[in-house]
């Protein structure tokens, strides 16, 4: 992405790549983003003046989708492994796997939202609904962006049909983003779904 890094490629002040540094700082920023959304949710989840509350959650579905997202992290790390060890086939397969698992997760989320909506929980029903949708919705958006991001990495690696000098780095950085989305869900799953009654 960067041209000016070109000549400093072998010598940066911190000994790390600019692009990877950028991603880590961005992820630090994202912590504050999800922190604010989660604060809002925690403040509002008890403020259910009318309509459904946290008892609307369906454990089975969410557990499966959580498992799916965890497994996508595993496949992502294997894709990074493939890139770093020159195993092009493994890398492509695992990237595809990650993308598909991400899509499955999104499918589950759409299903969940539709079910909740049919049970009477909408953005305007109550504070719980609004803050729940906006929190998990933004997480879903991040998964969606991640799917597009990884797809572009997969497409470009198919087009190039080989591992370029910078491929491991690109896959690695894409992986950082994907794993971050996963750890956000690890926190959300526990705080939103498993500890709902308090």
């Amino acid at each position: 992405m960067s041209a000016a890094t070109h000549e400093t490629e072998h010598h940066t002040s911190l000994g790390v790549d600019n692009r990877k540094l950028l991603m880590w700082i961005f992820l630090a920023s994202e912590c504050l983003f999800f922190g604010s959304l989660l604060s809002t949710y925690l403040i509002f989840k008890g403020e259910s003046l009318s309509g459904p509350g946290t008892d609307i959650f369906a454990f089975e579905i969410t557990s499966i989708s959580t498992f799916v997202l965890l497994m996508s992290s595993l496949s992502m790390v294997l894709a990074v492994y493939g890139a770093q060890h020159g195993q092009l086939g493994l890398m492509k397969l695992m990237l595809l796997c990650t993308i598909l698992l991400g899509l499955v997760f999104l499918g589950f989320q759409v299903y969940e939202f539709k079910t909740f909506a049919s049970e009477g929980l909408t953005l305007s029903t109550n504070q719980f609904g609004a803050s729940f949708y906006i929190l998990t919705g933004f997480h879903g958006c991040h998964v969606g962006v991640g799917v597009l991001y990884l797809s572009s990495l997969l497409i470009s690696s198919v087009r190039r049909n080989g591992i370029g000098k910078e491929t491991p780095l690109y896959i690695d950085i894409g992986g950082l983003y994907w794993h971050f989305v996963d750890i956000v869900w690890i926190v959300l799953f526990t705080v939103v779904y498993l500890i709902p009654a308090y």
Binding site: C31, L32, F34, G35
Partner: peptide, 13 residues
């Protein structure tokens, strides 16, 4: 860097 962001977010939350 990441820990700084994460700890700050947790404290503010």
């Amino acid at each position: 860097i990441f820990a700084f962001g994460f700890v700050l977010a947790t404290c503010l939350l």
